[in-house]
Design a protein around this nucleic acid. Structure first.
Lengths: 184, 184
DNA sequence: CATATATACAACACGTTGTCGAGTTTTGAT
DNA sequence: ATCAAAACTCGACAACGTGTTGTATATATG
């Protein structure tokens, strides 16, 4: 029973890894299931034992990232966060799994993944900003949209060129976010 | 000669329009060439007379939008722009072709199109900001990345729900952009 | 009117997909 | 040791989408 599950996990991971290695080179719509199983050394039919289709294997990776996201930001702790701490942890999260985020957040990546990341970050920043009475309901949503999309784009921009150390990434972003927060 | 070109244009436009109508309902990877030609009333092979593949027909639409973009922002005039005027014209541009932008900029859309729009807007905002000596070279790029991606996301956000009149869209965005500009 | 060219079509060969039933090997239980 | 179940392989299948080629019709040119 335990060896069954282990073997199953191993095959599944092997397929996921092979998929990702191909995805790092090819765009999603050019990848065939045979590409993946050939690289992993399995029969094409084995793929369908573990996944529904190519999108399913991508979603599988994304869900793992979402799990690590949720683990990092336990909802019970949020009350004690401030903007600075939240930004720090966000940068930590993205840099920890750079290999996946730098691709998934890029134009070659998955726009729906970006969307979900944005929504998750919005929730976090909103819970911090909710005591700030200077925002009307509409303005908060607008501010969050602006902040979070800027945040993600800048982190991705930093991934690509890494023009300065991660501390400056934090400082630059913190300045920008703080400036927008202090509006009437 | 004139009848050929007219007929050609007509067929091409018919295919483009049919494609877009389908694209408004289905995601790109589910659209087949037969879908398009059936709707337009042509043989599938006719598609290949005018376009290389499905991506080519999308690029064709995008290029038309880029043309209207460039026409709106003649590079010679930029010297006389200020931040306020540039933002106004940007909002004009997007709202004028809402039908196309709201889809192409969305998660269902084309990330590479978004990327090009961002680059074009960056160039414009950069030419205005270049006199502002408070930015170092790295900081300018960073500021532009943050501003432009926030700008586009917010316009798209406004497209979806339209929670307030377009004047407020401008005012809210102007406040956010101006706040970030005034950093040391 | 004859010839050349442009447009659209019908048919073809090819690759990918998702599924199936049958067979093999490895593991677990009695 | 024996039997059952699980994981995977194999070969084959129909269905579908793709891109190309040769051909017929409409239009333009000399």
């Amino acid at each position: 029973m335990s060896i069954y599950k282990e073997k199953r996990e191993q095959t599944k991971n092997s397929l996921i890894n092979s998929f990702w290695e191909i995805y790092e080179k090819k765009s999603l719509d050019k990848i065939t299931i045979k590409n993946i199983t050939d690289k992993a050394g399995y029969n094409r039919a084995t793929f369908y034992v573990h996944f529904k289709d190519i999108n399913d294997i991508l979603q599988c990776i994304e869900n793992q990232l979402f799990d690590s996201f949720d683990k990092m930001f336990k909802l019970t702790d949020i009350e004690n966060y401030d903007q600075e701490y939240l930004l720090k942890k966000s940068i930590d999260l993205f840099t920890l799994n750079t290999r996946y985020y730098r691709l998934l957040l890029s134009p070659k990546g998955d726009p729906y993944f970006v969307e979900t990341c944005k929504e998750k970050l919005k929730t976090l920043f909103h819970s911090i900003e909710k005591n700030n009475s200077s925002f009307t309901s509409n303005n908060v949503d607008f501010f969050l949209e602006y902040t979070v999309s800027g945040l993600i784009s800048c982190i991705l921009y930093w991934f690509e060129s890494q023009p300065f150390p991660v501390e400056d990434l934090f400082n630059n972003l913190y300045k920008l976010i703080a400036a927008c927060t202090l509006l009437d």
